[in-house]
Design a protein around this nucleic acid. Structure first.
Lengths: 248, 248
DNA sequence: ATGCCTCTATGATCACGATCAAGGAGGTGA
DNA sequence: TCACCTCCTTGATCGTGATCATAGAGGCAT
């Protein structure tokens, strides 16, 4: 019994420990990136832990009231916007350290649902408290501006992809980008698992599922990648990058 | 002589008058929107007037150092991103009261050139001063967050347009959106002048110039709009809106 | 294991819009 | 005023990727 109790306490401690920004392995990528230890504690105090989301569960639904932004701790999510009659559009994928929900500030409602692609944990950051805190912490404010600005820049890149690139280039870009994002997070840039379906990828890239399948097959034949289900092995990243940037 | 001098002084005064946020006709749309008079004066103090840009002149060039954001006072501009070898992409059009340059914060450099489509005046807002001021003025800070958030939301809408809509829907959306933006600024939503070329429109919407021309012709035949060069008369806004949102 | 259902792959056909081509309109500077 | 150059329009053809159709593979609960 005593042993059990001790274990329980240990567990709680370790969970608590794990769960503070100061000890988070993502702190070098995440919002508090630029903060001093003391400031980070203040920031840490406002964030709320959430129970892990299971695959398919939604962090929030399109149209629900905006209260918080969320930092992804582990797992991944997709943002889906529904317009008119059942015509969904995947507008983003989120990986650990990325900030979800910033596009809800303006109208105080989320413009799309955000759904877990696998078991996923997030930190909830109530926006009014973040805003207040950003008053006292210029570094935090700057980081927030930068996050939004980066997202704007990424959006522009996406628009370019959607309006100028061929199907092959879109997929090459997609894999290059994923590879790069994994690399930055300390994972292998060559070998990873897709948490999203072909349908999600196609929807996101403005392509039919069949096209995604076909092109993956072709990439495989060309020796660029090795794909087995959702497992991806990038065999020739340079060629993939070249393909992604090539003129049509 | 005395009359001349008086006139000159009047002119200066009126220019000065014109040029303060308190008296700007755009103040209800622009960044200082939510500010009290006193706060607005503080904000007013940091903004810099710029000589008007002539058609074709650039506000800044892609890659140049980010120092300021700009609010459009009159006229219009386009944002153009060049990638690789001479392949331009128009990523945005800016109308009066809109904020230009927010996507440069992150990397401290502008990700695209911004070019005047006609004679255009802007207010320059040095970003470091804006940031500092936003510390003291929560309303200003909120407005800035909202501006960026709105741009994010607009980007998502654009992605949807580029990846799911037909050429007809894209043009219908484009005209609807322009109409709405003019309406909000107090201009006629039915009758306006395009400041951008067909090539710019096509590039922005991911369409060939020829397609733009053809579809405008068709819209005209269908009695939706009347187009003569760059003059546009919207004859049936409802139908245009319906067309824009219709499923493919 | 077994069956069900979703996800993925591959083939055949079709359509939208790009591209190529050429002529006309409109604005601008000498 | 004229010539030039850019912008716009219209026509003919072609290609990429969507759509339709089918079948196989893989995950999940029972």
């Amino acid at each position: 019994m005593a042993v059990h109790a001790a274990n329980a306490i240990d567990k709680r401690r370790s969970l608590l420990h794990e769960t503070r920004c100061q000890n988070c392995s993502l702190s070098s990528l995440c919002l508090p990136l630029a903060l001093e230890l003391e400031d980070m504690e203040q920031f840490d105090a406002i964030i709320r832990r959430r129970a892990p989301l299971k695959k398919g569960e939604s962090l929030f639904r399109q149209g629900s009231a905006f209260n918080s932004v969320y930092a992804v701790r582990s797992g991944s999510l997709k943002q889906v916007t529904t317009e008119g009659s059942g015509d969904d559009q995947v507008t983003n994928f989120y990986l650990p350290s990325e900030l979800v929900g910033l596009d809800g500030i303006d109208e105080q409602a989320y413009p799309g649902s955000v759904i877990a692609l696998e078991t996923t944990t997030v930190c909830e950051i109530p926006f009014d408290r973040l805003d207040t805190l950003s008053e006292a912490l210029p570094e935090l404010r700057g980081q927030l501006y930068r996050s939004m600005s980066k997202e704007l820049r990424d959006d522009r890149r996406m628009m370019r992809l959607l309006s100028r690139k061929t199907a092959d280039q879109r997929l090459a870009s997609f894999f290059s980008s994923l590879s790069d994002r994994f690399r930055r997070r300390g994972y292998s840039p060559y070998s990873f698992r897709l948490s999203m379906s072909r349908a999600d990828i196609g929807n996101y890239l403005g392509l039919a599922v069949e096209t995604v399948s076909r092109i993956l097959g072709r990439f495989q034949q060309q020796g660029l990648v090795e794909v087995s289900g959702r497992e991806v092995n990038i065999l020739n990243l340079e060629a993939l990058l070249a393909q992604a940037q090539e003129e049509p």
